[in-house]
Design a protein around this nucleic acid. Structure first.
Lengths: 239, 239
DNA sequence: CCACTATTCTAGACTTCTTTGGAATACTGG
DNA sequence: CCAGTATTCCAAAGAAGTCTAGAATAGTGG
């Protein structure tokens, strides 16, 4: 095999990973998987795809080495193969956001919708700031993701109230303290909604910059499991 | 437009960049462009593609915001849109190399060929080490890339001798000093060949880890233009 | 060992990429 | 303004990816 052929083969192999990133649906699956392990069925529902199609996409991602599968009974749980995969994904989004004008617009379009009022980007707390304030104890950290995701990993000391339960459980939050809400990551709308709800209830609330995913990428401390305040999941017999 | 549609659009936009990375030929073009600006014709020849095909690929890369075009007379010079694009490319290769077993094998296959004897990877100098040794003046730095690439940017103080001229110009190198050869980047074979040639001539020679590209990504100092020792390009009237 | 479930495989229709050669365009120099 | 050159556009053929529905597989629980 000549030099040129070898070079071609080499690039073609790397392109396999590139190809895996070349479908909106697969990126959506990666985004979901970045939040934690998911079953094929769950992914199919969340991405609005047929189960077969989802499975096929997952095979592509797996052959590219971006995700791995773990069998548990009849379920197969997929997950990101590593943090470097998320960094690649993040870098892709950064480059896309910086260089393709439409991406920035689409992102704003998506995040700006579904909220009662626009929340200015200044009402954010950085990760470092949150960490020091948690240490000082002058802030309530609120995790508004679904309980399973909270159980898998959350910011130490955070309280779990999924955003759809927030309106009727708002009293569980200690009054008189500022609340910092967070959700999955930069492309997740849950914390935006939560802050809007808290403001509507007259609470002082901010949003954590980005979310859990980036928290993990920066290798900041996490806690897992349920807590006493998260009463909703205590009744779940599966755990 | 509903939330779901917006999300789909957003991911589809990002996927445009992913798609651009999903072809071996385009990755090859990116690799070439990472070395510096190139014309369509040059790229077509280097990647063994038709000019029309090359142009089409370049359009894809440009629409993804990965490269930009600069017109100069009838020539159009393409170049990487920014260092973040190279970082993305690099991250892609890293993930590919780590996760897809075949990539590591293909890479070794490619780099191990065309040299008289295998050069152990230990005969490398790190960037930091080279910088301090250049400061101390106890090393000759040799740039074996084509003269145009040397002229565009090179390590300060480096001498330019393209690898194909090295056998007959080896005497231009000061004797008694160790030579550190470098070329384009991690996937470039020129420096491997150069070190083999130098060893065959009884010289003490090492290879710089990776190459010029990574040197620039790490924002280390570069010099541009020609030098007195690079006599071959002094006659070029275009400069 | 059988019924059941989650997942993967298969085949076919459909769409989207890739490549090619030739025509059209953009620019230079006389 | 014309000849010449580099590049892009265009149309068509072939290759490859995407999706769907239904069959096959792997594992669980009785």
């Amino acid at each position: 095999m000549g030099d040129r052929e070898k070079k071609t083969v080499l690039f073609e192999q790397v392109a396999r990973v590139g190809k895996a990133l070349g479908s909106g649906k697969r990126l959506e699956l990666l985004d979901l998987l970045a939040q934690g392990e998911r079953s094929v069925e769950h992914l199919a529902a969340a991405a609005q795809l047929g189960v077969s199609t989802t499975s096929a996409h997952l095979q592509v991602l797996r052959q590219a080495g971006l995700v791995n599968a773990r069998r548990e009974g009849t379920w197969v749980h997929y997950g990101l193969a590593g943090l470097d995969v998320y960094r690649l994904f993040e870098q892709l989004r950064n480059v896309a956001g910086d260089r393709v004008a439409d991406v920035g617009r689409a992102r704003e379009d998506y995040l700006d919708s579904g909220r009662p009022a626009a929340i200015p980007p200044t009402q954010e707390v950085s990760r470092d700031e949150l960490l020091t304030r948690v240490g000082a104890g002058d802030v309530t950290v609120l995790d508004v993701r679904p309980v399973e995701e909270y159980a898998a990993a959350h910011i130490p000391g955070a309280i779990s109230i999924p955003v759809e339960e927030l309106p009727r459980r708002i009293d569980e939050l200690p009054s008189g303290q500022q609340v910092v809400a967070y959700c999955r990551g930069a492309y997740c709308v849950l914390a935006y909604e939560a802050v809007a709800l808290l403001h509507a209830a007259g609470r002082d609330a901010l949003r954590l910059h980005e979310g859990m995913l980036e928290w993990r990428v920066h290798e900041l401390p996490v806690e897992s499991g349920t807590t006493a305040t998260a009463t909703a999941i205590a009744a779940d017999p599966a755990r």
